[in-house]
Design a protein around this nucleic acid. Sequence first.
DNA 1: AGCACGCCGACT
DNA 2: GTCGGCGTGCTC
Length: 816
Amino acid sequence: MSSQITYVDVILPLALPQAYTYAVPIDLVPFVKIGQRVIVQFGKNRFYSAIIKNINHKKPAVDAKLIETIAEEEAIVTETQLKFWKWMSEYYMCTEGEVMNAALPSGLKLSSETKIRYNENYEGDFDTLNEEEFLIVQALRAQQEIKIPQVQDLLKKKNVYPSLKTLFNLSIAVSSEEVVEKFKPRTVTYIKLNEKYEDDEELEKIYAELGRAPKQVELLLAFSQLGKKSKFIRKNELLALSKSTAAVLAALVKRNVFTEFKMEVSRLGNLQTAELDSPELSAEQKTALAEINQHFETKNVVLLHGVTGSGKTNIYIENIKEAIAEGKQVLYLLPEIALTAQIINRLRKIFNTQVGIYHSKFNQNERVEIWNKVLHGEYKILIGARSGLFLPFKNLGLVIVDEEHDNSMKQADPAPRYNGRDSSIVLATLFNAKVILGTATPSVETYYNTERGKFGLVKLDKRYGGIEMPEFVIANIKDDTKWQRMQGSFTSTLVNEVSQALSKKEQVILFLNRRGFANYQVCKTCSYVYKCKNCDVSLTYHKFSHQLKCHYCGYFEKMIDKCKSCVAIDLDIVGMGTEKIEDEIAELFPTAKVSRLDYDALKTKHGHAKVISEFENREVDILVGTQMVTKGLDFDHVSLVGIINADQLIHHPGFRSHERAFQLMMQVAGRAGRKNKKGRVVLQTSDPAHTVIYNVMNSDFKRMYETEIGMRRQFQYPPFARVIEVKLKHTKVQNIEQASLYLANEMRKTNTGKVLGPAIPFVSKINNYYIREILIKSTVDSKKLLQTKHALQQVLDKMKTLPDIKSVSVSVDVDP
DNA sequence: AGCACGCCGACT
DNA sequence: GTCGGCGTGCTC
């Protein structure tokens, strides 16, 4: 029994299909535990920090290496987290290593560095060396130790191994692997008086001795005054208060009067702020809170559907308090952009030092400290962006996902391509914790889940002043074109509505989902369309900068007035963008002040904040913008929203864009209306009968959702189906064609899901890579979904063995 | 992800 | 002829 070797299976922070097994040295056996971070050699000379997944005595098929060391005695990953990682890797079709990569702050992921030294015993000459090798030798002799990136810099190329190998073979240089812990605790230097001088007599003596060094006497005096209460003082503080210098202090340290020592401190600072009582709840809010708690008796997830400004945060605060009172931890997820100082300060004022924050603006060292504080339960509340759900919670009691509809809750790239909302529900289930999803515009899946009773629904539809849903008006572009009633890009209906709103001194938002001036530019003679060199999409004409820009990669060229392809000088600008709308509306309403809010306006004009504040202060009457107008704004005097091209929003290939369009539509529409006054939304469309909005004209959002859900049921999109999106990428089109055909055909054969593609005739090109997506629709039944995934995995594995297409890179996304 | 091995084009 | 490009395969 005791002679058995102990093995550990570890997760390496790499995209590897399986766990790897290492043997544990006999002296480390008593210390290994699951979730512990160990350092292992993987490959010829690389070291990684890995996480122990399980411990056993089964001898692996291949010889196991020994683990190098244990990074820290304590397990920094909990077993719950390991379960969560496993779930995530299976659900989102990636490796556990990739999940680990996303989960751990890189301060906890170490990497080894190859260091190269000059061999001092080398006695030969350098005659056989080439120029590059000699350059390295010179550098080695000057600095005696250099790292690979320095060599790459030196030789100005990436592959430096051949040159180094020559030097190693000739024993001119030697290499060593050094493991670097990235996390460095922050230390502060303190100054202490040597014990000897605590005795007054000795102190007198030293003053006498120092007689001829007045600066040192001064410093010592200052210390004895400052240091009266404690025996040591921070170095910086001492220097600042005594107005002395580091050199003087160093002299005293050298004389052994003072001793320097370092102490680890937290980077996170002391967050003590004035305690603030939590806000008093309004009657509606109290009811909502009671309803949430009532739902929690039978359900784990509740949607808090509250219009903007209904005070959802006040309700969260009460729920957080309850969870904390039970000794549980709370996770509060927000989209990165919504993680503002405002919300953080508010919670900090109430919950003080129990609140931790976790998002991309923290550096790696800070993130490690936060990780540890969550692990040790020092933080009770964690406010974070979606990656916050990877923190090592011990006893999570409540998860709040605010702005649950926000598409930044979904990680697009790289793997794991997970949805923060869905994943946090799974995480909560592992802890038997409750989840509140909060939003003013629920995602369709969430709405559907409340409808069929899976989630509880609590509505908070009263604003403080009370607001009604807007009235929808359809403006038919086709009719107006036929009767020649169009005024530029505007229908007569919209023009009338705008002038009415303006005459009542109300504000207008015009929404168009395309920036720039015009879609594309085409030659009237030869029909040549200006396209991007890199991306194969048409270039957008920007009037302000007089450029043709690619909205995909940012490429731009100067606009010229003659055709690139033939001799003609008659070019046509087709389509419209926000710039053009801005121009046209200004011309139609010359007395109105018009402003524009889109990506370009941020840079060229005066920035986001200024545009918004001008609009809020009613210095601007008409705001033209892209979806930016929907981001966290609340305008009180907007009575009219014009959607310039509703077709574009509704008729869009692929359900993802459809979903986005739907969200957008609701959010834009939600901007209309003011206190006690119904707003109006004008939808310009050339095909009213096929516009979703037609069906819900003059109705409320409930019908909008229902229509959308109906369509999704009909076409089997999420939430009625699961969709696996396979993205193929390669430099050669033929390989993409072959791979996508193969994949689609093989998947059809397995009969585990409906394959959409490669019939989708769309291969995009980004930076020399061709990309094609294939959608595989499976049912919501988790067993069937698993089958589909297995089948897909097999097909992908097999594809890797096919000579012609094996190098095609594949990324898989699962929706939802 | 790295790193080694191996097979084809532009250089001495 | 070789150097060096990157396509391919493996890492406990």
